[in-house]
């Protein structure tokens, strides 16, 4: 369990750095694809709620620490996201295209709507236009298109590097 969490955190930490540096150059109509969010969802589906909410908490905290958002904002959202998306572990059949795209759509909507709710409930003072704007459509399209690719890449890497043998007795 701990190993799973650490692996997930390691991957997401690297992505976090890349998301704020390298991927800053990959912009479509002023919007960046949220690779880290999609990978987080992939990992959550893979690892289940328990591990994912811990990963979400730590990742959210890290995000809060490195962005100007109020401390707790991302922590709240990603903890809950880890839990919610982790519920789908073992219950969802993954085809190569539709389900990943749907998860990409749901993740983007969740972050937007969830962020809006947190902002409203805790009176963080961000205007509605900070969440609902034309860029959101581009963001949705980008994430929907990107999600199948990320899911496929994750599956390929897993198949390539993971030892197929399992421990005996438990």
């Amino acid at each position: 369990m701990i190993r799973t969490i650490l692996w997930a955190l390691g991957i997401l930490a690297v992505l976090l750095v890349f998301q704020t540096t390298l991927l800053s150059y990959v912009v479509f109509f002023g919007v960046k694809a949220d690779v880290m969010l999609i990978v987080f969802v992939v990992l959550a589906i893979q690892n289940g709620s328990f591990a994912s909410q811990i990963v979400g908490f730590v990742l959210g905290f890290a995000l809060d620490a490195v962005t100007v958002s109020p401390l707790g904002y991302h922590t709240f959202l990603f903890s809950l996201a880890g839990y919610l998306f982790g519920l789908g572990s073992g219950k969802v059949y993954f085809d190569p295209l539709v389900m990943p795209a749907l998860l990409g759509l749901l993740a983007t909507l969740y972050i937007t709507v969830g962020g809006l709710l947190v902002n409203t409930v805790f009176r963080l003072g961000q205007p509605l236009s900070a969440y609902v704007h034309m860029g959101l459509v581009v963001q949705l399209v980008l994430n929907v298109l990107l999600a199948p690719l990320v899911f496929w890449l994750y599956g390929w890497l897993k198949e390539k590097f993971q030892d197929p043998r399992r421990g005996f007795g438990g």
Binding site: Q53, G60, D64, L71, L124
Partner: peptide
């Protein structure tokens, strides 16, 4: 986690 997050925000 949610409580802690909320406290952070508050």
């Amino acid at each position: 986690f949610l409580v802690v997050s909320s406290l952070f925000i508050l």
